Amino acid sequence: MVAVLALGACAAWRWNAIRVADAQAVAAERLRVEALEQRMDALRRDQRAQTARLQQAEATNRLLREELIGLGQRAALLDETVQKLADPATDAGQSLRLDEVELLLAQGQQRLLLSGDLDGARRAYALAAQLLDGIVDHARLDLRQALAQERAALDALGEDPGVAAARRLDAFAAALPALPQRSAPAAGEAAWWDRLLSRLVQVRPSGEAQALAPDERVAGLAALQLELALARAAIERRDVQAWRAALARADEWVLRLWPESAGRAARRGDLRALQAHPLSPQVPALGSTLGQLRRLRQA
Score class of each variant (00 low, 15 high):
residue 231 A to Q: 10
residue 200 L to K: 14
residue 246 A to R: 00
residue 209 A to T: 07
residue 198 S to I: 04
residue 250 A to Q: 01
residue 225 Q to S: 13
residue 251 D to I: 01
residue 262 A to T: 14
residue 222 A to R: 13
residue 265 A to R: 14
residue 252 E to G: 07
residue 228 L to S: 02
residue 213 A to E: 05
residue 228 L to K: 01
residue 209 A to L: 10
residue 244 R to K: 04
residue 262 A to F: 10
residue 197 L to T: 14
residue 250 A to R: 00
residue 263 G to K: 00
residue 258 W to S: 01
residue 237 R to M: 07
residue 267 R to K: 12
residue 236 E to D: 14
residue 216 E to I: 05
residue 203 V to C: 10
residue 263 G to Y: 02
residue 202 Q to L: 15
residue 234 A to W: 05
residue 215 D to M: 09
residue 262 A to P: 11
residue 219 A to H: 14
residue 260 E to I: 11
residue 217 R to C: 05
residue 250 A to F: 01
residue 245 A to V: 09
residue 252 E to A: 05
residue 207 G to Q: 14
residue 267 R to T: 10
residue 260 E to M: 12
residue 231 A to Y: 09
residue 203 V to S: 12
residue 255 L to T: 14
residue 243 W to F: 03
residue 266 A to V: 06
residue 205 P to A: 01
residue 213 A to P: 05
residue 205 P to R: 01
residue 220 G to V: 05
residue 250 A to G: 02
residue 247 L to M: 02
residue 253 W to V: 06
residue 245 A to I: 05
residue 249 R to E: 03
residue 218 V to G: 15
residue 254 V to C: 04
residue 264 R to P: 04
residue 260 E to V: 12
residue 219 A to R: 14
residue 236 E to Q: 15
residue 198 S to P: 06
residue 237 R to A: 11
residue 265 A to Q: 15
residue 244 R to L: 00
residue 256 R to I: 04
residue 270 D to I: 04
residue 213 A to V: 02
residue 231 A to I: 11
residue 266 A to D: 08
residue 251 D to G: 08
residue 221 L to I: 09
residue 208 E to R: 12
residue 215 D to R: 13
residue 201 V to Y: 11
residue 208 E to P: 06
residue 218 V to N: 14
residue 197 L to H: 12
residue 243 W to N: 00
residue 229 A to T: 14
residue 207 G to M: 15
residue 199 R to Y: 09
residue 255 L to K: 05
residue 268 R to K: 05
residue 234 A to E: 06
residue 198 S to N: 06
residue 253 W to L: 13
residue 219 A to E: 11
residue 259 P to H: 03
residue 201 V to K: 12
residue 264 R to S: 07
residue 207 G to F: 15
residue 211 A to E: 11
residue 216 E to F: 05
residue 221 L to H: 10
residue 241 Q to I: 13
residue 248 A to K: 05
residue 260 E to F: 10
residue 256 R to S: 00
residue 213 A to W: 07
residue 216 E to A: 09
residue 242 A to Q: 06
residue 251 D to L: 00
residue 225 Q to M: 08
residue 223 A to Y: 06
residue 231 A to G: 10
residue 240 V to T: 15
residue 248 A to Q: 04
residue 203 V to D: 09
residue 215 D to P: 07
residue 228 L to R: 03
residue 206 S to F: 14
residue 239 D to N: 08
residue 222 A to S: 15
residue 233 A to N: 15
residue 232 R to D: 13
residue 213 A to K: 07
residue 265 A to G: 12
residue 265 A to D: 15
residue 236 E to N: 14
residue 215 D to L: 12
residue 235 I to R: 04
residue 205 P to D: 02
residue 267 R to E: 08
residue 220 G to E: 03
residue 254 V to H: 04
residue 206 S to Y: 13
residue 235 I to F: 04
residue 267 R to D: 09
residue 219 A to N: 11
residue 262 A to D: 14
residue 208 E to I: 08
residue 240 V to I: 13
